[in-house]
């Protein structure tokens, strides 16, 4: 870890000012000299590993008073960015009206981490690619743009089969973001000119030729809230992983359905553990919508979800696995009692 200054931001304007001031115009957000600190569960690790080297830390936890609301209403849900994962997962109305959100949070990390980690920080957590996290490997386009990708032909069991480029195959590791992208969530961003809202699906950027640029946030911008319209009681988050708890997904699916008399009126499907960004499977949804549900349909939907998937040496299994996870999640969602 390298020396850094530490500042507690007592109101949003102070935070935005502090984060903007240190930023050079062309900095990728991940390389910005000033970084916000919420739960600290990703940033501190990466600083210890010398992967992130901010010179200024802006502690935004004092903003929790205004930014940690859990506010389920009749028309939709608003979640403050500084709400703790554990608090949201345990919230009774979230469990009832948005099981996909509650479960995506409950199945993530460990109890200790969920008590520390915030929703905003969670969606911003960075990839677990071993080569990215170990600075002794020079070849990492995400860490050292233009240096190559050690994972491409290396040990890549955990890596992405969707949304990858020939520059980067690092997996987006989180769970909650799949629920958000499935439910067409909006994200509220607070910056120098106040707040703006954009679809959550526009937050993360696939690696393309610039894997170091992971989101559309600019230095000085902070996620302040998420909002979702409507309620999604018929929704599930299914996560397949090597151990029973405290482990990243090998494949996961966030599924939300509106089913009436056996016909799927509306369908949302997002994939985790298999893609470079929180992955919305719109083609798969199109196959599902308006149809009578049966196992054959589930299979066709799953096939559509992975139609563009491309495996490498150790991760090809994720394509077959991902399809089974999608099909199973759909079955669970259709048959769940609500």
């Amino acid at each position: 870890m390298r020396p850094f200054s530490y500042q507690r931001a007592t109101d949003p304007a102070v935070a935005v000012q502090a984060l903007s001031a240190a930023a050079a115009a062309n900095d990728a957000l991940t390389k910005a000299a000033a970084q916000p600190l919420a739960g600290g569960t990703t940033l501190i690790d990466l600083m210890k590993l010398d992967v992130m080297r901010p010179t200024a830390i802006v502690d935004i936890n004092p903003l929790a008073d205004g930014w940690s609301a859990i506010d389920p209403g009749n028309d939709g849900l608003r979640l403050g960015a500084l709400a703790k994962m554990s608090d949201v997962a345990a919230h009774e109305e979230i469990q009832r009206h948005y099981p996909v959100i509650a479960n995506s949070l409950k199945l993530a990390a460990s109890a200790q981490l969920r008590n520390m980690a915030t929703l905003g920080g969670n969606v911003m957590q960075r990839t677990r690619c071993s080569y990215f996290r170990d600075v002794s490997y020079e070849n990492c386009n995400k860490r050292n743009p233009g240096s190559g990708c050690a994972a491409m032909d290396g040990v890549n069991r955990m890596h992405a089969v969707l949304g990858a480029s020939d520059q980067c195959i690092a997996t987006y590791p989180g769970d909650f973001a799949q629920a958000l992208v499935a439910l067409d969530a909006m994200v509220e961003i607070t910056g120098r000119s106040g707040t703006r809202n954009m679809p959550f699906s526009e937050l993360h950027k696939a690696p393309g030729n610039t894997p170091d640029i992971e989101t559309t946030l600019r230095p000085g911008e902070l996620i302040s809230a998420f909002s979702i319209s409507g309620r999604w009681p018929r929704s599930v988050y299914l996560k397949a992983r090597d151990r029973q708890s405290y482990e990243f997904a090998l494949s996961s699916a966030a599924v939300a359905l509106d089913v009436r008399e056996g016909t799927v009126r509306d369908a949302r499907i997002a994939l985790g553990g298999v893609a470079t960004v929180p992955w919305r499977a719109r083609e798969a949804e199109a196959v599902l919508k308006g149809q009578k549900f049966d196992d054959g349909l589930a299979q066709r939907v799953a096939d559509a979800a992975f139609a563009d998937a491309r495996g490498r040496r150790h991760n090809s299994f994720k394509i077959a696995l991902g399809k089974r996870v999608v099909a199973r999640a759909l079955q669970q969602a259709v048959t769940m009692e609500i």
């Binding site: 996290r133 040990v155 708890s245």
Partner: peptide
């Protein structure tokens, strides 16, 4: 060695 840490070198948790 690639997975030289306890996040990637898996050992059981209580739930296992």
């Amino acid at each position: 060695y690639v997975n030289d840490n306890l996040a990637d070198y898996l050992v059981p948790v209580n739930a296992d």
